[in-house]
Simulated assay, not measured.
Amino acid sequence: MDPMDLRIFTEPQQGASYDTLLTVAKATEDLGFDAFFRSDHYLAMGSADGLPGPTDAWITLAGLARETRSIRLGTLMTAGTFRLPGVLAIQVAQVDRMSGGRIELGLGAGWFEEEHTAYGIPFPKEKFARLEEQLAIVTGLWETPLGQTFSYEGTHYTLTDSPALPKPAQDRVPVLIGGHGATRTPRLAARYASEFNIPFASIEDTERQFGRVRAAADAIGRGADDLVYSNALVACVGKDDAEVARRAAAIGREVDELRTNGLAGSPAEVVDKIGRYAATGSSRIYLQILDLDDLDHLELISAQVQSQLG
C-alpha cells in the first residue's frame, strides 16, 4: 500500500497530568510516529474519574512545543465554543512559533454540553454557523499580509482593523475539519481544510464521507486530492490474544467490539485492516490510545505495525 502516516491521539480528560502527556509525546517522537494529538475537553466521559483533572489543550501543546523536536502537534478537535476566534488565532500562531512550525489545528463546533455547564462556558444553540465564522476569521487573520489589517463583520463575530498578528511560523498552519455530517461538514472542509478527518467510522462510512468531501471540493473548483483524508480509530494491539484481551480490559472495552469498530488484534490483523482503510483514500490514521501508562503498546505498534506501512 501507499505510505500511511500513524499519529498518536490521546484523550487526557479521561485522566492524565501534563507529565504523563509529556512522557507519551516523547515516546511518540522517539518511536518514529508522525505526530502527537490530543482532544480538547474539560470533563471526563463515561465511568472515568478524570483525576487529576483536565488540562488545557493549547497550554499542553505550548509546553510540548518546547520539549519535543520533530513530531507534529495538534488537536482533534479544538472546541469552537471554548475560545474567541481572534484569541485562538493568536494562541495557535504563538504555539506554532514556539514549535518551529509543527502545529496543526483541528477545529470543531463543540458538542459536549455537560463540560460547558461544569465550567461556566456558554453553550450557544447555533454552533455550526459560529464555526463557519471562526474558520473564516482564524484563516483570514493568518493570511493577511504583514502590514495590512483584517476586518470581518459576521452574525456572531466582528473584527475591526486587526493587525492580524502574530503570524505562524508556517506559511499555512494545516487546518483539520472532521465529522459525519452529510452536507455542511463536507462544504466547510472543501473551503477551509487542509485535512478531512472522520472519527470512529466503519470502512463503508469512511468511503461514503470521503466521497462527499471530494464532491464538495469539486463543486467549488478545488482539487479533491488537495486534501489529506484521515481516520481516527481506537487502537488495541497485542502480540497474542491474551495481550489484546488484557489491553481491552484495561480500557473497559470488549475485544470483539474493538475488532469491529477499531484497530484491534494482532499486528498482522491491524496492518490488514489499515490496508482496507487505505483503499478508501485514507493516508493517515490517528491511533486513539486510551491507556497512557502502557508505553509497551506504543513500542509494539511502532515495531510491528508502523514498520510494515511504508
Rank of each mutant, 00 (worst) to 15 (best):
R172W: 02
Y157K: 04
P124F: 05
L176F: 09
L105P: 02
I137R: 03
T280H: 05
P12H: 06
R259K: 11
G74S: 06
D30S: 04
D161Y: 07
N197S: 02
D171N: 15
G181F: 02
L300W: 07
S202P: 13
A201L: 10
V95S: 01
R191Q: 11
R7V: 15
L61R: 05
A62K: 05
M98A: 15
L51V: 15
P122S: 12
D291S: 09
T75Y: 09
I177F: 00
T149C: 10
P166M: 06
W111H: 10
G15A: 12
A164E: 05
P168W: 01
D226T: 13
G252I: 14
I198P: 07
G281K: 01
Q288Y: 05
Y42C: 07
E114S: 14
L292Q: 11
V24T: 04
L227N: 00
W111G: 07
W58I: 08
I59Q: 15
P174Q: 14
F37A: 10
T60W: 05
T117P: 12
W111M: 03
G275C: 02
L300C: 08
T28G: 01
L233E: 06
E269S: 03
E207A: 15
A201G: 09
A79K: 06
A189Y: 01
M4W: 10
A118R: 00
I71M: 03
G100H: 08
E114D: 13
G63K: 02
Q209I: 06
Q304I: 10
I203R: 04
G110K: 03
I59T: 15
Q148N: 09
F128H: 12
I198H: 07
G15T: 09
